Amino acid sequence: MSSSVDRCCDTTRDWVCEAVRIIEADANRSADTHLLRFPLPPGWGVDLYLKDESTHPTGSLKHRLARSLFLYAICNGWITEGTPVIEASSGSTAVSEAYFARLLGLPFIAVMPRSTSAEKVVLIEREGGRCHFVDSPGAIYDESRRLAAELGGHFMDQFTHAERATDWRGNNNIAESIFEQMALETSPEPEWVVVGAGTGGTSATIGRFVRYRRLRTRLAVVDPEHSVFYDAWRDGDPGLVGTRGSRIEGIGRPRVEPSFVGQVIDRMIKVPDAASIAAVRFAHDVLGRRVGGSTGTNLWGAFQLVADMVAAGRRGSVVTLLCDGGERYAHTYYDDEWVAAQGLRLDEHLEVLREFHRSGRWTAPVDA
């Protein structure tokens, strides 16, 4: 006698189809983000571009990740109608996931350290999310799993799924967008693309894409203080664990996350926190707009690579990311009292940046 079990019903499939339509409609009505030129002297023969991810509806690069994570979870059958969604995040990922959860009528809970800034809590709650606090930052993963089990929900787990939720071969991912927008530029195939690593998903996507498209572009990943990605990559030690979190929100981790694919990275650059914040201030002076801390980290690495090209007499282009706007950091990176309280001195790093912009020379230690 044969037997069968049917786990699908029309109502569930109808909800899935409608949820995918809603997410894709959101993407369809959102214009692609701009590719901005950072002003450099024309005589250098090197063009620097910033992919401005701050123009997404939720204001950051994490909007792309959240969209991909929701589609991945829905299409895997992990999220259906009414499923509570839980994420371990105190930052932009939680803001973006709360946005998509609200679009789909799903409850969303962000598990975060109790020390999370009030500004971030307001942004998450404004998008309809709820914040669940823990005393120890390291407890966010276990508490997220516990909540998901208790509520019959789904732990999104960005740090595991970021590298696999995005189709790295194309399908309007950030890599495909960059290279399509570069197509009519003087040097359409960049010598370098520079990104930071939080989950590692963006670097994995770009590194895989350039290989798949048979491009010569190299990938550089910048890493802030107190993050272990740089040391783990340099020493080939994926089990390395740090003792504290990063001051540069959105990037840097005290452990090597499952989504970090070091094999697709051509170079890593360690960036002091004072240098990241100095670059934030410098970018504001040059561009006339505020950018977030991770953009400062990206720019410090990109400037170093541009200086290498100028010194070698190589013409070409470099692309990096403007990850989010600086409005979220008015009380930290743009606050002199906060900077001083952190024991950070910006003057010497600002002088490195000014000298670079004047002459193309890099006077800071290499990869520092």
Rank of each mutant, 00 (worst) to 15 (best):
S2Q: 09
D6W: 00
R7D: 00
C17N: 11
A19T: 08
R21G: 01
I22M: 13
R29N: 05
R29L: 10
D32Y: 12
P39F: 12
W44I: 12
D52E: 14
H56V: 01
P57C: 07
R64T: 02
S68Q: 15
F70G: 10
L71S: 11
Y72L: 02
A73V: 01
G77F: 12
E81K: 15
G82E: 04
T83P: 04
P84F: 07
I86F: 07
G91H: 11
Y99F: 15
V111P: 05
M112W: 03
E119V: 15
G129W: 07
R130K: 14
S136T: 07
G138W: 13
I140N: 02
D142C: 04
E143W: 01
E143Y: 08
A148L: 08
L151K: 11
H154M: 08
M156Y: 06
D157Y: 15
D157K: 12
Q158S: 14
D167M: 07
W168Q: 03
R169M: 13
N171C: 04
N171K: 10
S177V: 11
F179Q: 09
Q181M: 14
A183D: 11
L184M: 07
S187P: 01
E189M: 06
V193A: 00
V193F: 01
V195W: 00
G196D: 03
T199S: 15
G200D: 05
S203F: 01
I206P: 02
I206W: 04
F209P: 12
F209K: 03
V210A: 05
R211H: 14
R211L: 06
R211K: 15
R214H: 14
L215V: 09
R218P: 01
L219Y: 09
V221G: 05
E225A: 11
H226N: 13
H226P: 00
S227H: 04
F229N: 13
Y230T: 07
Y230P: 03
W233Q: 12
W233V: 13
D235Q: 14
G236Y: 05
G242K: 05
T243N: 13
R244I: 12
R244H: 14
S246Y: 13
I251E: 04
P254Y: 08
V261T: 02
I265Y: 03
D266W: 08
R267K: 13
I269M: 03
S276D: 06
I277H: 06
A278G: 04
A279Q: 02
V280I: 05
V280Q: 00
H284L: 03
R289S: 10
R289N: 00
R290P: 00
T295L: 10
G296N: 11
F303P: 05
V306G: 06
D308S: 10
A311P: 06
A312D: 13
G313N: 05
R315C: 07
S317E: 02
V318L: 14
C323H: 10
E327V: 13
E327A: 14
Y329F: 14
D336W: 02
E337T: 13
A340L: 02
A341M: 09
H349K: 08
L350V: 07
L353H: 08
L353E: 08
E355H: 13
E355T: 15
F356N: 04
H357Q: 12
R358P: 03
S359R: 04
T363V: 15
T363Q: 09
